[in-house]
Amino acid sequence: MRLFDTGAHPCGYWPDRTARDLVLDPRDPRLAQLYPLALSWGFRRSGDIVYRPHCAGCRACIAVRVPVNEFAPNRSQRRCLRRNADVEMRVVAAIRTDEQLALYQRYLAARHPGGGMDDHGASEYDQFLVGAWASGRFLEFRSHGQLLAVAVTDRADNALSAVYTFYDPDQVSRGLGTLAVLHQIEWARREGLDYLYLGYWIEGHRKMDYKRRFRPLEAFTGREWRRMESGEDA
């Protein structure tokens, strides 16, 4: 297995920093088979690229996962479930639809303006969210037929991996990001899997704080997975 260093590029989390990644050889025909092992090593998928942050002098990005059989929703998460009692969930093939693309573009325009993804169209959607080799699925959330959110989710040997979630920016009060994780946890548990991988958590980063609320939570140290300390219930 070959690994490549991407060299320095703008950090996607801190605008005043640069970042580097380790990337599995994207031409390796075994990527689909190597992917579950890579997840256990703290890697993540973006399109057809399997990567892990590897920044000089910075270890802020910490891979985290939820042991789904030990998880129990806290008060806030139970309120989220009740608030979305009208929402129906359905797992569908990872195939782009015009409806999904329109929601994705609205989400990017509202949540990530000027972030370099504003002009994403059908080809960028497929490249980023579908990929050529991944065993992904789309978890759709609907209320009275209206598409509210899509959670792009990969299936590995013993886990699911939350790749990306986008939702209706006019429905922020529903907490659709939290709802997606709760149902991915339940999906993994129903399938007899052990973990839901949540990507990277960064201490002190506003957009990453929500991941600490799913407990218990395990963090990858670079050598092993360890249980993170619990915060206060909310």
Score class of each variant (00 low, 15 high):
136 G>E: 07
154 D>V: 09
95 I>P: 09
109 A>I: 08
83 R>T: 12
121 G>F: 11
79 R>L: 05
109 A>G: 00
139 L>H: 06
86 D>E: 15
119 D>T: 11
149 A>W: 09
58 C>F: 00
50 V>G: 07
60 A>L: 09
95 I>W: 14
66 V>A: 01
56 A>W: 13
160 L>D: 02
54 H>E: 10
155 R>H: 13
54 H>I: 12
53 P>D: 00
155 R>L: 12
128 F>D: 04
115 G>P: 10
113 P>R: 03
134 A>H: 12
43 F>V: 06
121 G>Q: 07
142 R>F: 10
70 E>Y: 03
84 N>L: 14
157 D>N: 11
98 D>F: 00
100 Q>W: 06
150 V>D: 05
82 R>W: 13
116 G>A: 06
79 R>F: 05
124 E>N: 01
124 E>P: 05
138 F>S: 01
118 D>G: 11
57 G>R: 08
55 C>H: 03
53 P>R: 01
48 D>N: 15
145 G>I: 10
58 C>K: 08
125 Y>F: 15
155 R>V: 12
83 R>A: 15
105 Q>T: 06
130 V>W: 10
128 F>L: 05
114 G>P: 10
75 R>M: 11
150 V>G: 00
112 H>T: 09
54 H>P: 01
81 L>Y: 13
116 G>N: 00
54 H>D: 15
53 P>N: 01
151 A>E: 04
50 V>N: 08
82 R>M: 13
153 T>G: 03
84 N>E: 14
44 R>G: 09
134 A>D: 11
151 A>D: 02
46 S>C: 01
145 G>H: 13
75 R>H: 15
79 R>S: 03
95 I>K: 13
40 S>D: 15
57 G>N: 06
69 N>H: 15
45 R>F: 12
65 R>F: 12
117 M>H: 03
48 D>V: 11
101 L>K: 02
77 Q>P: 14
47 G>S: 08
117 M>W: 04
43 F>M: 02
113 P>H: 07
78 R>M: 04
46 S>Y: 10
119 D>F: 12
125 Y>R: 05
71 F>E: 07
92 V>S: 03
160 L>M: 05
136 G>H: 07
